[in-house]
């Protein structure tokens, strides 16, 4: 376990995850203008929607820091460890969110925790298909794409979001939580069922022997 923790450096992600929650709570009004597709008007995307991407990127970085050859023949299963440590990251954010909400009452902190979970899940799933580098780009495009295609500002100035633009929904909206929970379950299953290179090699060797 010690070698695993030393190689993966999950502590950095935990620290950043906590900082993201605190920063989002304090800078709740900060926004980034995202041009909405086919309307020519910018949508003010809250930084609290964008900042959790940093945690998801770091999580991908953590998971790529292993030595594939050694992990392939390891007795223990690094993907299960990764999943457990991702749980620690999210748990640390929940604790930070509870403390921050007592200090700065706003729903932003809850939103940050939800979006972090969602972005990590998207990163894990996309990484299985195209690798971690493009997965991190895809994670970044989730909030920007939702703002560009799934947000509208009514004539009265109210903001409305498409049902699928879950990162933009309020922390109390259940649709977004269902989305994230679904993504989380699929991503966890994907991590736990992933065949390791060692397993692949062993099956090939068995084929050769037979």
């Amino acid at each position: 376990m010690r070698w695993y923790l030393a190689a993966r450096r999950w502590w950095l992600t935990v620290v950043v995850a906590v900082l993201v929650v605190v920063t989002a709570g304090v800078l709740a009004s900060a926004t980034v203008g995202v041009p909405r597709a086919l309307s020519g008007v910018d949508f003010p995307l809250p930084l609290s929607v964008l900042a959790p991407c940093l945690v998801a990127w770091l999580a991908q970085w953590n998971m790529t820091r292993g030595e594939p050859d050694q992990e392939a023949i390891a007795v223990r299963t690094p993907p299960a460890y990764d999943l457990a440590l991702l749980g620690v990251v999210v748990f640390s954010q929940i604790v930070a969110a509870v403390i921050t909400m007592a200090w700065v009452p706003s729903a932003e902190s809850l939103m940050v925790v939800r979006n972090t979970m969602g972005y990590i899940a998207v990163g894990v799933l996309v990484a299985r298909v195209v690798g971690p580098v493009l997965a991190n780009l895809a994670v970044m495009l989730v909030p920007l794409g939702c703002a560009a295609f799934g947000a509208t500002v009514t004539a009265a100035g109210d903001r409305e979001y498409a049902w699928w633009a879950w990162p933009l929904h309020d922390g109390s909206g259940w649709t977004a939580w269902v989305f994230v929970a679904g993504l989380g379950v699929v991503a966890s299953a994907s991590m736990l069922t992933r065949r390791r290179p060692g397993q692949l090699r062993a099956s090939r060797i068995r084929l050769l022997i037979e």
């Binding site: 926004t31 203008g33 964008l50 970085w61 970044m140």
Partner: peptide, 23 residues
């Protein structure tokens, strides 16, 4: 930086540099 971090960081940094100052 490690490429896993460098690519998204320059993407968002470059975008923010263009999109944030006007506001």
């Amino acid at each position: 930086l490690p490429v896993v971090m460098a690519v998204p960081l320059v993407a968002i940094g470059s975008y923010l540099l263009g999109a944030m100052p006007p506001a």
